[in-house]
């Protein structure tokens, strides 16, 4: 369980994250959604102390993250970057093995873990001795995910993990991501500015604007019971597709209602 309490971050007087509080339950997928510059990355990085908060506190399983060494904390939290952040001087196998090695795992255990991750992420094991630049962007992103998962951390932080990919690659990676058994039990905080992606992957969505939380809740709550005009407006562009996705193909009357609603708004 991750508890964020009243967390604030200012950079030279400019507030990037402004008194934010939320709780993420164990095994939950929590999506931080918002426009560019609203403070999502800053918020995410404060959880594994890549950025130290100006004020407020964060607890993981009741324990304050500020106490204890940041390195130990980070080794227990997987982190996926938008631009992979793979080590260019490490092979794929070595990249995946970074955290297990820091944790002092045995060689054989690391090898087996690496091979099984490669399988799960649908990557041929021939790549293990390649270097990152020899792989495609989509493949590199899969390795980035494998690296974050390598030591089987209970928490996964992901900063626009599919953001840099073309739509087809993105869809296929999202699909594999959803189907990954490993992820079912993990507490995930994922940052995105893509509404469809948020609805696809989130148990709960947290919509942010100018460093503040505007509304946090289940996707349908944000869609059907927006807290204010900003939330309502945020989804308007894609409301029809989102509602269809929410309702599902079986509830015919509701679908008709949504469609009519959509039509009146269009005219």
């Amino acid at each position: 369980m991750i508890e964020v309490k009243n967390i604030t971050k200012t950079f030279d007087g400019a507030t990037a994250v402004d008194h934010v509080s939320f709780t993420v339950q164990e095994g939950e997928s929590f999506v931080l959604l918002g426009r560019s510059g609203c403070g999502k990355t800053t918020l995410l990085k404060m959880i594994n102390r890549l950025i130290e908060p100006s004020s407020g506190e964060i607890r993981i399983n009741g324990k304050l993250t500020q106490e204890g060494s940041p390195e130990v904390l980070r080794r227990s939290i997987g982190y996926v970057f938008q631009n992979t952040g793979l080590f260019p001087h490490y092979t794929i196998a070595e990249n995946i093995a970074i955290v297990p090695r820091l944790l002092g795992w045995e060689k054989e255990k690391i090898r087996q873990r690496t091979i099984s991750l490669m399988e799960k992420l649908h990557l041929p094991s021939t790549y293990l001795s390649s270097y990152p630049h020899q792989l495609s962007g989509g493949q590199q992103q899969r390795i980035g995910l494998a690296r974050a998962l390598a030591a089987d951390p209970p928490i996964l932080l992901m900063d626009e993990p599919f953001g840099a990919l073309d739509p087809i690659t993105r869809t296929s990676l999202q699909k594999d991501f959803k189907e990954l058994d490993e992820l079912k039990s993990k507490t995930i905080i994922l940052v995105t500015h893509d509404v469809q992606e948020a609805f696809e992957l989130a148990d709960r969505i947290c919509l942010m604007d100018k460093g503040k939380i505007v509304q946090a809740g289940k996707p349908e709550e944000l869609l059907f019971h927006p807290a204010d005009e900003y939330v309502k407006g945020f989804f308007d562009d894609q409301r029809f597709q989102l509602e269809v996705r929410m309702i599902g193909p079986d509830d015919y009357p509701a679908l008709v209602k949504a469609f009519n609603h959509f039509k009146t708004r269009q005219s």
Partner: peptide, 26 residues
């Protein structure tokens, strides 16, 4: 590359590990 450095820190490398395993080698 600052991204690579940040990734190293995010993985839980200490300052010395960052220096010897990433910065000096690159």
């Amino acid at each position: 590359d600052p991204l690579v450095k940040e990734a190293a820190v995010a993985m839980g490398m200490t300052r010395w590990q960052l220096l010897f395993r990433v910065e000096l080698v690159l």
